[in-house]
Nucleic acid binder design. Structure first.
Length: 885
RNA sequence: AGGCGGGUAGCUCAGCUGGAAGAGCGCCACGCUUACACCGUGGAAGUCACAGGUUCAAGUCCUGUUCCGCCUACCA
């Protein structure tokens, strides 16, 4: 059936380009909107349009592709939905940088022209990562590729916004938010990264208006004093009891501010008195709300001190800090400073220090949504795996705060809210309104802000399927089967999809969520540009091939562990591909005259190794199937590896060589060919989801009937191949071979030297097995002769080995190396003695016999007999050696 | 501060519901045997972090200690 031969080595470059195009040409990635097949669906975590493929993407998408390809082969109508994310801030930044090179800003262009410019950029460069995913071999249904800002997705965004608004779950208000002075926008709590800083804690004296003793406050941000509207102390603090309600004079500003009591203040910290700057600190803002304090903004959107601050107007916040400190010192208000480590929030995009700032923003009232999302996981409607993440999810959901969804940037979904210029009515609509419904005025002004990018990402599982239209695809594929993503976006994305899915679709967005670990470098460090320890996936694909790279990722993906990636590992799996490649070459050479059609191969014509390898294959199929069902990617990968290399190649190919070489019975030869062909093609199928390219390459040559492996049927476990007898018999034969090889190695006998071996056993079954396996043993242990003996008398000049109930004597010419043999046997004996001691101690224990289960005791007794037998054999052999020496 | 995960062979890690310590890489020895030196055969190598406890039996379950990593919150 084979259609020729393979080149000496696998060329990944040629293969990858060729077969990916072939799959595309044949529409193999396409999923049906409706089908009689069971559905499997998975939405891609949309990478940023600005993104380049990094290790995280590579891992994430490899795992998704493995699942999608496996399910597709298993007969599912499998959809892998691809797309990209418009990444508001990141993309705007990129284009602004481009503009900066031309010496202009987005304000020079104006909103519409700027947006047009971003679209240009997106069309030109936005597809880069999609092509990189194709290099990885991803089998996404590209005909459905979505973008969070395309028309359909925009429609979904507006629809959801309006629904939330009408349900009273969206509100606008002046609150303190995290403000990035560089991006010039609010960002959500999640988008702030905290970083430890070595700073100072300054003590400042605030004098009392009535001339009595003032109060000392401590702060890490002295410049914010310009906006202080109170000083707070603990109501339980005896030191300040009589001060509460008095008025202080704010230095430099001369504002009169009250001393108030609030439980937020801790007595122990610092002086026990806190300056309150409601416009610059979330806690202070909360205090201000409780006490009705004034809120004085002291900075503009760029964190430059504003006109309310007199001589400091126009200064950057940090420049202002120096000046304020200098002036406080001059005025004698600065009492001291001490080094102080505290954490400072930074913008996760640009790393600029966040400025907490009061501003008018839009929020989603999140508690009701979070409640449903929590319940769904508790009820098991969605499973989060590994399960330990469920707690983290619950924890976060329980402590969730309202989600700030407005962003003061241009690139994104503009908030669908308009105001009538005449009557001031707020109009919220899915369609651009042309007139005010109340006063019929036609001059309407739309909100300037856009929505957080995660708002549209949260809708991804249903927006990509066509919602709000009632599409067939939506009916077929929602809820999706599986989501695979990194744990780092559990809150950002997974939690929000859960909330939105339940709110909009009244059902969870996915059945299973598999959270994978982070990819680190070989030292376990997080990869980052600044550390220079980035491993570029595309470079790895070029160097080792996508298959080896993918296999490495899968093999290293143990649940709940970080992945330490190194080139050596990838190289190792490239060797595995080479092994498979060469096993294929061997197969092809021996299958030239084989055809799977024609007379079926009778079960009774199968040899012992044939039956054995089919049994082992069947076990492997079960293991791989189970591992994939449980998302144990590493287990699946190592099962296949173990089978192909250490069972199929190491043993079966060697055992069947004489039969395949065609000297003997043609019927047995055909049975071996059939077995070889089946084992090889089944292995390839098991391997295909992990290594799509090399398996297709081989399939095309080996099967050669014009079919593609990627739409072939995934192997299923089949009880008919279960063969415990073959397993036991082959096991004994393999043990005998290993035992002889061990003697050869330990006694330093050249591999080329043909040996004479005598096997003694009293066990008739064992004897029969060896009789049957005589040829295999002679071949694989390189023997001149193998004879059975039923005489207890031991041959002279022989090294002794034990395998099960067999005694093996390797005849040595001339003088035996008595000392060497003794050493070898003593070493063996030491091991046996240790085992024997452990087992006999157990069997002597009454409690063990009484309390342990029967099967365990039985097993232990069996073990004892086995080890005892071995012990006796070694002992007689040793005794004889001692007599000789 | 709270939570989570981890400390098993030189390195990277498997070891599910407790029943004789495993793999890959590396290392050592011998081998160009007609698929493969990106290979073959054999070998060495572990008080399973520490201390208690439960049990006939503990790497596996419980408690405590310690070290490492991560997450969340707070930080005047």
């Amino acid at each position: 059936m084979s259609e020729g031969s393979l080149s000496k080595v696998f060329d990944s470059h040629v293969s990858e380009a060729r077969w990916y195009q072939y799959w595309l040409d044949h529409n193999f990635f396409r999923a049906e909107d409706s089908s009689l097949k069971p559905q499997f669906s998975i939405v891609i975590p949309p990478p940023n349009v600005t993104g380049m493929l990094h290790m995280g993407h590579a891992l994430n998408n490899t795992l998704q592709d493995i699942m999608t390809r496996a399910r597709r082969m298993q007969g599912y109508n499998a959809l892998w939905m691809p797309g990209t994310d418009h990444a508001g801030i990141a993309t705007q930044n990129v284009v602004e940088q481009e503009l900066a090179k031309e010496g202009i800003t987005r304000n020079d262009l104006g909103r519409d022209k700027f947006i047009a410019r971003v679209w240009d950029w997106k069309e030109k460069y936005g597809g880069v990562i999609i092509n990189q995913l194709k290099r990885l071999g991803c089998s996404c249904d590209w005909s459905r590729e979505s973008f969070t800002m395309d028309q359909k997705r925009s429609k979904a965004v507006r629809e959801v916004f309006v629904r939330l608004y009408n349900d009273g779950l969206i509100y606008q208000g002046d609150y303190i938010v995290n403000w990035c002075p560089r991006c010039h926008t609010a960002i959500s709590d999640l988008e702030v990264e905290y970083d430890e800083r070595n700073g100072f804690l300054w003590q400042i004296q605030y004098p009392c208006a009535d001339g009595t003793d003032g109060v000392v406050v401590a702060t890490t941000r002295p410049e914010t004093m310009l906006g202080d509207t109170a000083v707070a102390v603990s109501p339980d603090d005896k030191r300040y009891k009589d001060k509460i309600g008095r008025t202080l004079i704010l230095p430099l500003v001369n504002r009169r501010i009250p001393i108030i009591a609030d439980h937020h203040v801790s007595i122990e910290f610092g002086s026990g008195a806190v300056k309150v700057t409601p416009a610059c600190d979330p806690n202070d803002f909360a205090i201000a709300e409780r006490h009705g304090l004034d809120i004085i903004k002291i900075m503009d959107g760029a964190a430059v001190i504003n006109e309310k601050c007199g001589i400091y107007h126009g200064q950057d916040r940090y420049e202002c800090r120096e000046n304020v400190l200098r002036d406080l010192e001059k005025g004698g208000y600065l009492l001291g400073k001490e080094p102080y480590v505290h954490s400072v929030g930074q913008c996760y995009r640009c790393k600029t220090d966040i400025e907490p700032m009061v501003s008018r923003q839009w929020f989603v009232k999140i508690k009701p949504l979070a409640k449903a999302a929590t319940a769904a996981v508790i009820k098991g409607k969605t499973k989060i795996l590994p399960k330990s993440w469920e707690n983290t999810y619950f924890e976060w959901m329980n402590n969730i705060r309202d989600w700030c969804i407005s962003r003061q940037i241009w690139w994104g979904h503009r908030i669908p809210v308009w105001h009538c210029d005449i009557c001031g009515k707020e109009i919220v609509s899915t369609k651009d309104p042309s007139a005010c419904p109340d006063c019929k005025g036609v001059t309407l002004t739309q909100e300037e802000d856009v929505l957080d990018t995660w708002f549209s990402s949260a809708l991804w599982p249903f927006s990509t399927l066509g919602w709000p239209d009632k599409t067939e695809a939506l009916k077929t594929f929602y809820p999706t089967s599986l989501l695979i993503t990194g744990f780092d976006i559990l809150f950002f994305w997974v939690a929000r999809m859960m909330m939105m899915g339940l709110y909009v679709m009244k059902d969870v967005p996915f059945r299973d969520v598999y959270l994978h670990a982070l990819v680190r470098d070989e030292m376990g460090e997080k990869m980052s540009k600044s550390k220079g320890n980035i491993i570029d996936p595309l470079e790895m694909i070029d160097k080792f091939g996508a298959d080896a790279f993918r296999y490495t990722l899968a093999a290293l993906t143990a649940q709940g562990r970080d992945i330490k990636m190194s080139e050596e590992r990838i190289a190792g799996y490239k060797h595995f591909i080479n092994k498979i490649w060469n096993a294929t070459r061997f197969s092809l050479m021996n299958l030239e005259d084989y055809s799977s059609s024609g007379v079926p191969v009778g079960k009774d014509t199968l040899s012992l190794p044939d039956r054995w390898i089919m049994h082992r294959l069947n076990v492997t199929i079960s293991e791989v199937t189970k591992a994939l069902d449980e998302y144990h990617f590493n287990d699946a990968a190592s099962s296949i590896y173990q089978f192909i290399w250490h069972e199929l190649c190491d043993w079966y190919l060697e055992l069947s060589k004489p039969t395949l070489y065609g000297k003997g019975d043609p019927i047995k030869r055909r049975a071996a060919q059939h077995t070889l062909f089946t084992a090889m093609t089944s292995s390839l199928k098991l391997l295909h989801p992990f290594m799509p390219f090399v398996t297709e390459e081989i399939w095309q040559t080996m099967v050669g009937d014009g079919s593609s492996i990627m739409v072939s049927e995934f192997p299923r476990p089949d009880d008919a191949h279960e063969d415990r007898v073959a397993e036991r018999e082959m096991g004994l034969i393999m043990d005998a071979i290993t035992s002889i090889r061990n003697i050869r190695g330990e006694m330093n006998i050249a591999p080329s030297k043909k040996l004479q071996v005598i096997i003694f056993t009293q066990d008739t079954e064992a004897s029969a097995i060896i009789g049957m396996g005589n040829g295999y043993i002679k071949n694989l242990a390189n023997l001149e002769s193998l004879t059975m003996s039923n005489s207890e008398e031991e041959p002279r000049n022989a090294a002794t080995g034990v395998a099960g109930l067999l005694r093996l004597y390797v005849l040595l010419e001339g003088v035996v190396d008595i000392a060497g043999e003794r050493k070898r046997l003593e070493k063996e004996m030491a091991k046996v003695d240790k085992d024997l001691m452990v087992i006999s101690r157990k069997l002597a224990n009454r409690d063990f016999l009484a309390k342990a289960s029967k099967t365990v005791v039985g097993k232990e007794e069996e073990k004892f007999n086995e080890v005892k037998e071995k012990h006796d054999i070694l002992e007689t052999a040793l005794k004889r050696l001692r007599d000789m020496g």
